[in-house]
Design a protein around this nucleic acid. Structure first.
Lengths: 362, 362
DNA sequence: ATCACTTGTGGAAACGTTTCCAATTCGACT
DNA sequence: AGTCGAATTGGAAACGTTTCCACAAGTGAT
C-alpha cells in the first residue's frame, strides 16, 4: 500500500528491451531512434505509467525549472494578486513557483532566500523588508542567480516592477491641497518594514511642504486587527484640526471610515480619506473609496517577464514605473471650515512623528 | 559574471583535505569525526560559502522536503489566506511550498497535479474542481503520495479540512425564515466548478423547503468584474417579490449591496443580504455584512497538519468540520411586506434555475 | 570486396548528496 | 612485541536524468 514505487526510465528501458539512452531519446524526441524502438519504448512507458522525475533532470541539467518567490504575506491581497500575476506569466513556460513568505520579518526574509537558493531555483522574484541590505540576497546574486524585485522602488543594481510611490503620494497631497485641506495625517502600518510606505510618506510630506500645508502627522500602527477602528478612533479624537487622512493602504482607509463612523463624524464632510492600492472592494462600498489605483497583478507580470528575460540572457534595463490612477471616490471632499484666505505664513504646529500605538504592549 | 559557480561538498572536502564522506558527516553532524577534521571542514565550508544542494539531497534521500499545493486562484482572498495558514503550519518543519493555481479549470487542475508529482513533492494539499474525478490525483495517490484536501466536503478515501457547507447554508435559510422571508435567491459564481457552492445551494434549498418557503431562485454568474453590480441590478430588477439573497461569497454579497443601491433600494429594508466566508472587510463596511464566518487560515492549518501526520505514518481520521459562525451584520432584516399569516399552502412559482448570464457572449 | 558514410544503439560519466562498509590508525592490554 | 577493539576515515554505490562517445550494422559507391 504505502510503498512509493517509482517508475524510472530504467524500468521503461528494461521493459522495452533497450538501453536507457534510447528510451531517453524516444521519450524526449531528442535523437534518432528506429520506428520499432520508438514503438516499444512508448508502449512500455504507457503501460508503466512512467513520468520523468524533475529531480533527476534538474540535477543533471543544472536547471530546476523552478522559480523562487518571496513576499511578506499572502494574506495581503496586494501580494496575493501579484503572485497570481507571476503565475499567469509563468504559465506555459514550464517554470513552477516555490513560494515563501516572511510575515514582514527581515530575519525570516534572509532565511527564506537562503532556503530557496538551496533548492536551486533558477531565479528569484522578491518583495522583502530590505533587499538592499540582505546578505542572503547579495550572496544569491553573486552566485549568478537572476533576481527580479516587485513593489520596491528602484535600487542600485536591481531591476524592479513598481509604481512611483513618491509621485503617487504627491498626487494625493495635490488633491488634498486643491480642495483646501491644510492639516493632514499619514497613516501607515509597520512603517519600519516597508520602503513603499516610507516613500509614500516622503512624497506626501514633500508636496505638503510645497503647497504650504502643515507637515502631515505620522500615525503608525503596529498591527491591524479586528479592533483597529476603535484604536483609530481614539487616536483621531486626540488630533485637532485634522481634515484629511492619507492611508498607506485601502484596508486602513476603510478602517478610518469605520473609525469616523464610531466617532459620529461623517466622511467626507468632517474628514476626507484617501487610500492606496485600489483594491476591488473599495469600488463597491457605499461611499466608494478615493484611492491611488495600482495594478498588483501587472506588477507580478512585469517582474516575472523581467526575470524570464534575464534567464534567457537578455539583461534588459529598468522599466519605467507602472502607471497609477487617482480614483476619485466619494471619500474626498472639501474641509468643513474652509481656510480663510489669510495667506500669511503661520507657524506650523509641531508634527507628531511616530505616534506609536503601543497601547497594547504598555 | 554570469558563471553560476556552485560550491559542492566535493570542493569543501578537497579544500579541507579529506574525503567527501567525512565532510558530509561533519556538516550534517551525522557521524564521528576527529576534532581536527571537524575544524578543517567547517573552516573550508565557511570560506567557500558552501551550502547544501537540496536537489542532490532529495535525489539521494528520496524526499524532496517540498509540498505541492494547488488552489483555484490566489486572487481569491479565501484561498490566499488558506495558503498562508498552510505556510504557518509548515514553518519550522523544513518543508517548502510549491504552489500552482488552476484558475478554476479542471483540465489545468490535472496538469498541475501531474507537474507537482513530477517534481517529487512529498505530499499534496489541494483544492480543485473535482478531486473525486481527477485521474492525475488518483494516480498520484496510487504512487503513495499523501493527499490532504482543503475546502472540499468529505469525499470517500480522502481527508479534508472543511466547513459543513450544507449545514451553514441551512443556517442562513433558518435566519431568513425566522425573519419572515419566503421568497429568496441563491447567488453563485461559477457554480459548475465548485462543489462548495453546490453544497451550499443544496443546504439552502433543503431548509427552504423544510420551512415551507419558496424554492430559492438560482442566479449564476460566469465571472465577477467591475460591472458585476450593474449586471446584478438588471437581473434583480427582473425578479419579483424577492426579499432576501444568499450570496455564495462575501464579495458577491457586497456587489449585491451595491446593486441594490443602484436600483434605489435599501438594504436591509427592501432586500436582505447574507454572504459567505466572513472576510475581514465585511465588518468594516458602513452596513456591516451579515455572513457565515469561516476561518480559511484554520482550514489551511488543519490541512497542513493532516498532511504532516500522514507523512509521518500516522494516518489519522477525517476530522469534524471546522466551526462556522453566523455573523449578524446589518444587512439582514425583516421583509417590508410581512407575509400575512395566510398559511394555506400556496403553489410555488416556477423557480428560475440556472439563470445564466451570458449577456456578454450573446 | 573494400571503403566511407549514415543510422541506430547502449555503455558510462556526470550532476550533488548520503551512507554502507572496508580499511586504517592508535592506544591498551596480554 | 603482538593482538584486539574502538575511533576515524574515505572509496564507492545509489538516487534518475541527459549526453558524449564509441561501436555495430546497413547502404551505396568505388
Amino acid at each position: 500500500m504505502d510503498r512509493r514505487q517509482k517508475v524510472t526510465i530504467k524500468d521503461v528501458a528494461r521493459k522495452a528491451g533497450c538501453g536507457i539512452a534510447t528510451a531517453s531519446r524516444v521519450l524526449n524526441k531528442s535523437g534518432p531512434a528506429s520506428a520499432e524502438a520508438r514503438e516499444r519504448v512508448e508502449m512500455a512507458a504507457r503501460e508503466l505509467g512512467f513520468s520523468f522525475s524533475a529531480l533527476g533532470r534538474a540535477l543533471q541539467g543544472g536547471r530546476s525549472m523552478t522559480i523562487g518567490c518571496l513576499v511578506p504575506s499572502l494574506a495581503n491581497p496586494v501580494f496575493a494578486e501579484a503572485v497570481q500575476g507571476v503565475q499567469e506569466t509563468l504559465k506555459g513556460t514550464g517554470y513552477q513557483l516555490l513560494i515563501a513568505s516572511s510575515n514582514y520579518d527581515g530575519e525570516a526574509d534572509n532565511e527564506a532566500i537562503a532556503t530557496l537558493a538551496a533548492k536551486e531555483v533558477d531565479g528569484l522574484i522578491v518583495t522583502m523588508v530590505a533587499p538592499e541590505r540582505s546578505a542572503a540576497l547579495k550572496q544569491a546574486r553573486q552566485r549568478g542567480l537572476p533576481v527580479s524585485l516587485m513593489f520596491h522602488d528602484p535600487i542600485d543594481g536591481f531591476l524592479t516592477a513598481h509604481v512611483d510611490n513618491f509621485e503617487a503620494a504627491r498626487e494625493v497631497a495635490r488633491q488634498f491641497a486643491d480642495r483646501g485641506h491644510r492639516h493632514t495625517a499619514f497613516l501607515a502600518l509597520r512603517f519600519s518594514t516597508s520602503d513603499r510606505s516610507r516613500n509614500r510618506y516622503a512624497g506626501f510630506h514633500a508636496e505638503c511642504r510645497a503647497r504650504d500645508m502643515f507637515d502631515p502627522t505620522l500615525i503608525e500602527l503596529d498591527e491591524a486587527d479586528a479592533n483597529t477602528p476603535e484604536l483609530l478612533a481614539a487616536i483621531l479624537a486626540a488630533q485637532e484640526g485634522l481634515t484629511a487622512i492619507f492611508a498607506s493602504n485601502d484596508f486602513l482607509a476603510i478602517a478610518v471610515q469605520k473609525a469616523a463612523r464610531l466617532m459620529g463624524e461623517s466622511v467626507p464632510r468632517d474628514l476626507s480619506v484617501v487610500g492606496f492600492d485600489g483594491i476591488e472592494i473599495g469600488r463597491l462600498l457605499d461611499v466608494p473609496l478615493a484611492t491611488i489605483e495600482t495594478a498588483p497583478d501587472a506588477m507580478g507580470r512585469q517582474a516575472a517577464q523581467t526575470l524570464l528575460d534575464m534567464m534567457q540572457g537578455r539583461p534588459g534595463a529598468q522599466r519605467p514605473p507602472l502607471p497609477f490612477d487617482f480614483r476619485v471616490g466619494a471619500t474626498l471632499g472639501r474641509p468643513r471650515t474652509e481656510s480663510r484666505d489669510d495667506d500669511q505664513v503661520r507657524p506650523r504646529p509641531p508634527s507628531v512623528h511616530s505616534l506609536k500605538t503601543d497601547l497594547k504592549q504598555g
